[in-house]
Design a protein around this nucleic acid. Structure first.
Length: 585
RNA sequence: GCGCCUGUAGCUCAGUGGAUAGAGCACUGGCCUCCGGAGCCAGGGGCCACAGGUUCAAAUCCUGUCAGGCGCGCCA
């Protein structure tokens, strides 16, 4: 698959050199330590460096630089792959790769297209990513938006490294929250029909519930007032549930996040899964009764204390459902469960790890991604949000104001477990200060370039017939190296479940592209006399404006190829984040 | 009090044990007869919270201290 071919080639040579040295009796270590391979701090030291000699020093009881020398001497194909290999101070092996190998990266991108960056690191692994899972008691707000962006990106990253990822939303449609929803809507409904009733304590205050009650009134008039109270509340609850869940679904659709599975908590209860799960655990003495309540012995697996699953009043706690839900997920045969939670739930992690272990799985089978809050700003000033009063900023409002792409990008700009500032004014701005535009514009800029070229009769070339060796400028190599690193970035990002790494990478790549674009000319300077452009297509040489380099048709072709491949990588990266790559802006 | 997370440039943050710690913003000063200036370049700025330890090598690992955030319900 689409690995970083330069990296793979160099790793292969190092591996071979180590083994050759060992077979000659020059090295003893077995196994060898993991091979590191990173770009050195300073470009003049080379393209890639390994520290493996330092890692071997103590085991071999020889100074690292001697080991480094020995590795270098035993490298096969040294001259065909490297321009230069040097041993530096403590024991680095610094390698400069021949340009021909770097250029192959462009052919690789062209050949792989949308698949460039994808790998098989996690092939065969089945992963369930559960995210958003907001209670259907109100619209999604900004925090849910970040959760959605992170969850979607994590799922896409996992797919990109070969896993089979499923997107799932757990609908909390049972229990006290639902009851409260029913009570709240019932109160609104009665008030709308002229009854003076008290609002339920802890009820949902939001304006949106009044609207739900109004819609219910439009549908069934005042009839519910006559219904038996229990029946009326039930009708209110079910009506509101349907409406609010539909709203959530359409919010996510507007955010361009697609769930594969909507899993209902009620289904767990109606199928007896909760009882079943608890009976399972009871059999293994992991559930016990005390003080008239039922407890889960989570302390057995490192949780700080045991947890109640059924209260004294006979009601199940939230944990009971979660136990059944995770048991269900595990029983569906996933190799990995990823739960994306708000960071305030972090205290819940030990007990969920206990659940996983109680059902006989290693705790690593559950990985929790925590998502910190979003600070909404407007022109640098904080937008106050208070969930309690019901006056919070909804995801829909944000999408309406800045669009789904910009919102996702901002949500993914920081590591998910640190808070992020989201300036709505900045997100709308069309300038370099706005990172979303900066990256998307880099993509659009290449599209624009290609359009210009075609307008002027310069055909965007195919790679096969293009002499890429003309790409010899340091700026060009820097771009190619960055492009070459993309598959490794995706792999690291996928392994760590950290989509923000892609966001950072894209900003860096876009910066290199803008710099390059400014410094070097790709198409010849436009001539008012269009006929001369036709000439150019054959053989004219036009000096570039900002440097003394001579722009030939062949160089234009090579640079257009380079631009096209960078554009492809930007598109692939944005796609991983669920963000569009516009052709024009 | 206990637990988890976080202390890196003025601000917001990258940095999966390696060389002289990076980016964006802000600030200062430059750059438009030219493929979209919706852009580019240069500059100043750092005891990586503090103190010990492990290591050939620590912003990174361990211990402690300090500061901030969050969590510690028979709530969800």
């Amino acid at each position: 698959m689409a690995q970083d071919i330069v990296r793979e080639t160099v790793l292969g040579i190092l591996q071979a050199a180590l083994h050759q040295a060992r077979s000659k009796g020059l090295l003893k270590a077995d196994p060898f330590p993991a091979l590191t391979l990173d770009p050195p701090k300073r470009p003049e030291w080379g393209d890639l460096a390994t520290t493996v000699a330092m890692g071997l020093a103590s085991a071999e009881r020889r100074p690292p630089h001697e080991i480094a020398e020995l590795i270098v001497r035993n490298m096969p194909d040294k001259e065909t792959v490297f321009e230069r290999v040097e041993v530096a101070r403590p024991g680095y092996v610094n390698m400069t790769v021949r340009r021909e190998l770097w250029l192959k990266v462009l052919r690789e991108v062209e050949a792989q297209g949308a698949a460039y960056g994808r790998s098989e690191a996690a092939t065969g692994r089945r992963v369930l990513v559960e995210y958003v899972s907001a209670n259907p008691t109100g619209p999604l707000h900004v925090g849910h938006g970040r959760n959605a962006a992170v969850g979607q990106a994590v799922a896409r990253l996992l797919s990109a490294v070969g896993a089979e990822a499923v997107n799932e939303y757990y609908v909390n449609d049972a229990g006290r929250q639902m009851q409260l929803l029913g009570d709240s809507v019932w109160a609104h409904y009665q008030r709308l029909h002229g009854r003076a009733v008290d609002f339920p304590e802890d009820g949902y205050q939001g304006e949106y519930l009044k609207q739900v009650a109004t819609r219910l009134g439009e549908e069934s008039g005042a009839r519910l007032l006559e219904a038996p109270p229990g029946e009326a509340v039930r009708r209110c609850r079910e009506f509101a549930y349907r409406e609010l869940l539909d709203d959530i679904k359409s919010d996510l659709k507007a955010f361009r996040v697609d769930m594969d599975v909507w899993f209902s908590e009620r289904s767990l209860i109606s199928t007896g899964s909760v009882e079943q799960a608890l009976a399972d655990l009871r059999e293994r003495k992991l559930v016990f009764e005390e003080d008239d309540a039922l407890w889960f012995r989570s302390s057995q697996y490192g949780d700080e204390k045991d947890r109640v699953v059924r209260k004294r009043d006979g009601e199940y706690t939230y944990l009971a459902s979660d136990i059944a839900y995770h048991r269900d997920k595990l029983s569906r045969g996933y190799d990995l469960l990823v739960d994306v939670w708000g960071a305030d739930h972090h205290g819940y992690i030990p007990r969920m790890h206990a659940v996983v272990q109680a059902f006989g799985h290693p705790k690593e089978r559950l990985r929790v991604v925590l998502v910190q809050m979003v600070n909404l700003l407007r022109g640098g000033r904080k937008v106050e949000m208070s969930k309690r009063s019901g006056e919070f900023v909804t995801l829909r409002e944000v999408i309406g104001e800045v669009g789904a792409d910009a919102a996702k990008f901002f949500f993914l700009m920081r590591r998910s477990d640190t808070p992020v500032d989201f300036d709505l004014d900045l997100a709308k701005q069309q300038s370099a200060e706005n990172p979303v535009y900066y990256v998307q514009y880099a993509h659009a800029r290449v599209s624009s370039l290609c359009r210009r070229a075609e307008e002027r009769g310069i055909t965007v070339p195919v790679i096969a017939g293009t002499d890429l060796t003309l790409l010899g400028q340091p700026d060009e190599l820097a771009l190619i190296k960055k492009v070459s690193a993309y598959p490794s970035v995706v792999q690291g990002s996928g392994a760590a479940l950290e989509p923000h790494r892609i966001t950072f990478y894209l900003q860096e790549l876009a910066a290199l592209l803008h710099t390059y674009y400014y410094k070097h000319r790709i198409l010849p300077v436009a001539d008012p006399d269009a006929a001369r452009d036709q000439e150019f297509a054959k053989e004219a040489e036009v000096p570039s404006a900002r440097s003394s380099e001579v722009l030939t048709p062949a160089l234009t072709a090579a640079r257009l190829i380079l631009m096209r491949q960078i554009q492809q990588v930007i598109r692939n990266g944005l796609d991983l984040l669920g963000i569009g790559a516009p052709e024009r802006m």
